[in-house]
């Protein structure tokens, strides 16, 4: 489990043995020069990726009704918070936020259980089964989602789920994304077989072994999948757009779309909406940032 207070460290499995890639006879001065060069380029890259965020925050603090700036503004003068209050007065933003949180709060645990069960079974089944299921997971990842919108709508309406939160939650029944199943699969494949064999001989069934051994040892995978799942449901615009009708059930992404349709030129207000939507995701990302790196690589059994 990673703590935010830990010092920055690169992908853990490689740090001790990694040596200078282009090692050669070099004077310390030239090495230092190269380090400076690297940091200059890296800073440039990082700024390119981060500066738009600063622009958004600055725009959201601009006093409403004032003409748009004619040059780049890093901090508006005067700073005005009224866009944020107006956001909640103009639209039931609080309700949208609550709906989004509710959906994510149900979707995350369901996803964790479905994905980790499937992955545990996959990891434990004989090779022939394993390859079939791995193939299935990869094939599922390759299906372009727009190809399913329409008929998924028909299936959901047959089940009387249109205009319910259950329609938004539905993907959790397949672990939300086949990728999440794979993250757990890689984690479980690294468990020592002897440990599981011993538990089995002690009379534990698959569910018991999952609950007492596999799940606790796969905590880094759980952190990664929880975060990614939360972000998925928090961001999901297409499901509510296609499957919801009543305004009372709108989630934040649809709320933002409504805001855009109300007044597409009120940039300060729109950017305030963007900040409200992005902030929770950013906070989460900063806290569990390291889970991402180990994340895709095998969702880090090594992170322990």
């Amino acid at each position: 489990m990673m703590k935010p207070s830990e010092p920055q460290r690169a992908a853990p499995e490689c740090s001790p043995r990694r040596t200078q890639v282009a090692a050669g006879p070099r004077s310390p001065f030239r090495l230092r020069l190269r380090a400076v060069g690297f940091h200059l380029i890296a800073l440039g890259v990082a700024l390119t990726f981060l500066v738009p965020g600063a622009w958004v925050v600055a725009a959201s603090l601009r006093q409403p009704g004032t003409p748009p700036p004619r040059r780049i503004e890093w901090l508006p003068n005067p700073v005005s918070w009224s866009n944020y209050t107006e956001l909640f007065e103009l639209l039931p933003m609080g309700r949208y936020l609550a709906n989004s949180l509710f959906v994510a709060a149900l979707a995350v645990p369901l996803t964790l259980v479905v994905a980790s069960w499937a992955a545990f079974a996959m990891a434990q089944l004989p090779a022939r089964w394993r390859y079939v299921l791995l193939g299935l997971a990869v094939a599922l990842r390759m299906v372009p989602l727009p190809a399913l919108w329409l008929t998924r709508f028909l299936v959901l309406s047959e089940l009387r789920l249109i205009d319910t939160f259950a329609a938004l939650l539905a993907p959790a029944w397949m672990g939300t994304s086949p990728f999440f199943v794979l993250i757990y699969y890689w984690s479980f494949r690294r468990l020592p077989p002897a440990l599981i064999e011993a538990a089995r001989l002690d009379g534990l069934g698959p569910l018991g072994i999952w609950a007492r051994i596999a799940w606790p040892l796969a905590r880094p995978a759980t952190v990664a999948v929880s975060v990614l799942t939360f972000v998925h449901y928090w961001s999901d615009f297409i499901s509510p757009l296609l499957y919801l009708k009543s305004e009372a059930r709108y989630t934040v992404p649809v709320g933002l779309r409504v805001l855009q349709q109300l007044d597409a030129t009120n940039w300060p207000l729109l950017m305030a909406g963007v900040v409200v939507m992005v902030l929770p995701v950013m906070v989460l990302f900063v806290f569990v940032q390291r889970a991402f790196w180990v994340g895709e690589r095998i969702a880090g059994v090594q992170g322990n």
Partner: peptide, 23 residues
């Protein structure tokens, strides 16, 4: 390559990816 500060740079590159599509 792991070197000082590289974690922060990587995070900066990843950051736009977690921004929700509508935003």
């Amino acid at each position: 390559r792991p070197r000082r500060g590289v974690g922060l740079y990587r995070a900066a590159v990843y950051l736009p990816t977690v921004v929700p599509g509508v935003a």
